[in-house]
Structure formats: structure tokens, C-alpha cells
Amino acid sequence: MPANSFNGHTDYGIGIGLRVPHYAHILEKKPVVDWFEIISENFMVDGGRPLQVLDQIMEQYRVVQHGVSMYFGSADKPDRAHLKKLKALVKRTKTPWLSDHLCWGSVDGTYTHDLLPMPYTFASAKRTAEKIRQIRDYLEVPICVENVSSYAEYHVSEMSEWEFLSEVVERADCGILLDVNNIYVSAKNHDFNPYDYINGVPHHRVGQMHVAGHTKFEKYILDTHDHPVLDPVWKLYAHATKLCGVTATLLEWDDKIPSFDEVHDEALKANEFIDGAKKAKNSKRAAKAGAPVASS
């Protein structure tokens, strides 16, 4: 959906991740960019250069917060100090929505700093949804949960990953950050059809999408974010855009980061598929209108 309650009724277009090697270029050249996604944890500090840069960026651009450590799926209670810092940042950035991953990564207060796959069970869906609700109520901002890439599955799982994602977001009444590259990576690693995944999630809840590059190895695919987006991922993106509508989209490029322009140009390729989706939508509307009276 272009704008919905899960992305704060915004229509943000195509953004890229704000990364350190690009700071100087952005601040000096002030290139036109729809929006930047920031990694919340990089700015959950009390002072210094990170916040100075953030304030300068916010003078010119819209930013959206994306987290990597909230671990909605960790059975631990949310950490109070963490939430407090996150809320301070939410107030500073006025992010219209906030995203983090549908994964776990900590237990007993010990952090792995990884995005670990969930066991797809009703018990973990229930616990995860409760936690998302608690966090959203505290932060007072819409939340979109992102599907992760994974390299392992559990025997205890009771459903597919997309059924689990749907179960969680329906229970939590929250949005989805649909990462089509992650769907592709996990589909290859776990031998499912990525189109089944995209067809199977509640499209009206998708508030944002991610595209990114990955790396193929002999026996598995790794989500490396160090390449341009591969063709099959763009195709999935086009399919998702047709089903969900034109949605705020972000390119992730986190390693071997090339020039700002190269990253931005790669992100803007999404326009091609967005135009395709818009045309398809318009012709559907026209078909409903019946026969034209006269050609203009």
C-alpha cells in the first residue's frame, strides 16, 4: 500500500541506507534523495559526532529508523535502558514508522549480535506478538517487522515462515517490512518457492520493502549486502509491488560500499518496476470503467 497506518500514512518513495563512507558526499553535495534509512543503534548514543551528523542530515532529508537489536523474537523481556534510548531517538528523528527484524538474538541478557531464525511455532508467535505490542505501546510509533535471511530451520517448526510472519503481524496488528532479497535467499537455502511466500503474506500490512544484493556459495546463499540487486530479486520485487501497491522501498548496501551515486542509481532501478505496477493498476481501473466514449 502506498500509505497505510503501518508506515504512518506516508508515501516516501525510494531511499537508501545512510552509511559513514557517504556522509561527506551527502553533507557537501546535498544530492536529491527521497529518504534515508538510519540504523537506530548507530545513533542511540548520548552525544558526539553521530548525533551531530544525524541533525545535519535531518535538516535536509527525511529519515526512517531501522533497528538491528530489538529482537522481537527473543523470549527475554525488552531491556528498559534500550527502550529508553530508542524512544529518545524516535523523538529526535520523528520517524513515521520504525522497523526491526522478526528474529531473536539474545537470551538471559547475552547478545549474539546476529539475526537468528525463529522457530515457526504458535507459542513463539504469541510471545513475539506480545513483545511487539509492548514495544509499540511504549515507543508510540508504528512498527514494521522485517523477515530475515536464514541458514537453518528447526524440527519444532509447525508452519512455513510466511505463515509465521502472518500469524505474528495479525496478532500484533503491526506492519511488515518485506525484504524480498531475504525471501529469495531463504527460499534458495530452504527450497521453497519465493512467490508462495509473497503471495501468502497480508499485503495490506506491508509498509516498506527492502532490496539488496547477496552472494552465492556452492551449498548456500549468504545475505551479504555487498552487490547490486540480482535479477531474480528485482523480479520478486516487481511481483510484490503488484500485490502490495507501490511501497516505500530501500536498497541496503552495507559492505564493499561503492560511491554514493552508484548506490543511489542502483536503488532508483526500482522505479522501473514501480512504473510497471502503476500501469497495471491504471489499466485495471480503466477496465472497470467500461468502454471509452472517445479516444483523446
Binding site: A75, V107, L116, T121, A123, S124, Y154
Partner: peptide, 11 residues
């Protein structure tokens, strides 16, 4: 995984 406690054990 019948309960949150089971989820904790697995994690």
C-alpha cells in the same frame, strides 16, 4: 515449543 519457557530453552 508449548510455552515461552520452551522457547527460552531452545534459544
Amino acid at each position: 515449543l508449548a510455552s515461552t519457557n520452551d522457547v527460552v530453552k531452545l534459544q
